[in-house]
Amino acid sequence: MTAVEPELRRVYGAYPTGVAVVAGLVDGRPAGIAASSFVPVSLDPPLVSVCVAHTSTTWPLLGGLPRIGISVLGAHQEHIGRRLGARTGDRFAGVAWRSTAGGCVLVEGASAWFDCTVEQRVRSGDHDIVVFRVHDLDAALDVPPLVFHASAFRRLG
């Protein structure tokens, strides 16, 4: 850790972000991570991105899958954000999810979801920026998103 890191965390935390679950089927079981760095990238072609820490032990299992699901958690799903952000235990215990024919894992009740393939990885500092091509998507516009702000989960409104 650098001397600047605590200040960086504090200042980065001033910017609220949505909370997304990046998940797929690994040996028939759901595997996934929580990401607060989900960003739409492009309309043509349809691209989104997340940043994944080099220390992640789950991303190596997901990165080679043919399809990966991204679910933007709803405000009522803070418990799922906490569970998927944990480093140990069964992250999907008690989480309602479904899988697609291609192997995406999508969280039920999310405010939005995306069926994706990995398009590009860019090594950047202590994370990789992973760009995904979107193949299918939907949103529940009546479900407000969960946000992460100042090191805590928050609800809009």
Rank of each mutant, 00 (worst) to 15 (best):
S151W: 02
A140L: 13
L73H: 00
Y15C: 09
L106V: 04
Q120T: 15
R154Y: 04
A53R: 11
V50Y: 04
A75E: 04
V134W: 13
G85Q: 00
V41L: 11
F38G: 07
H135E: 13
R91G: 01
T55S: 14
V41Q: 12
F153E: 03
L62G: 05
S124C: 15
M1N: 09
L84T: 00
D115R: 10
T100I: 02
V48P: 12
R133Q: 10
A53P: 02
V39A: 14
S42D: 06
C116V: 08
A139V: 13
A23V: 09
R121N: 09
T17S: 13
A3I: 09
W59L: 05
T100R: 01
A3W: 13
T57K: 06
R98F: 01
T17H: 05
A110H: 07
V22S: 12
G109V: 09
G89N: 00
E5F: 12
V21T: 04
A93E: 00
I129F: 07
F114K: 11
F148V: 05
F148W: 06
I80E: 00
D128W: 11
G125E: 14
P40H: 15
A75V: 01
V52S: 02
S37W: 11
R154Q: 04
W113S: 14
E108F: 09
G28Q: 12
G81C: 00
P45A: 06
I80Q: 00
V107L: 06
P6M: 02
G28S: 13
G102I: 03
L47M: 09
V147N: 10
G13I: 11
F92L: 00
Y12N: 12
W97G: 01
G125Y: 12
V26R: 14
G13T: 08
V21P: 04
S37L: 11
S49P: 05
S56D: 10
D142C: 04
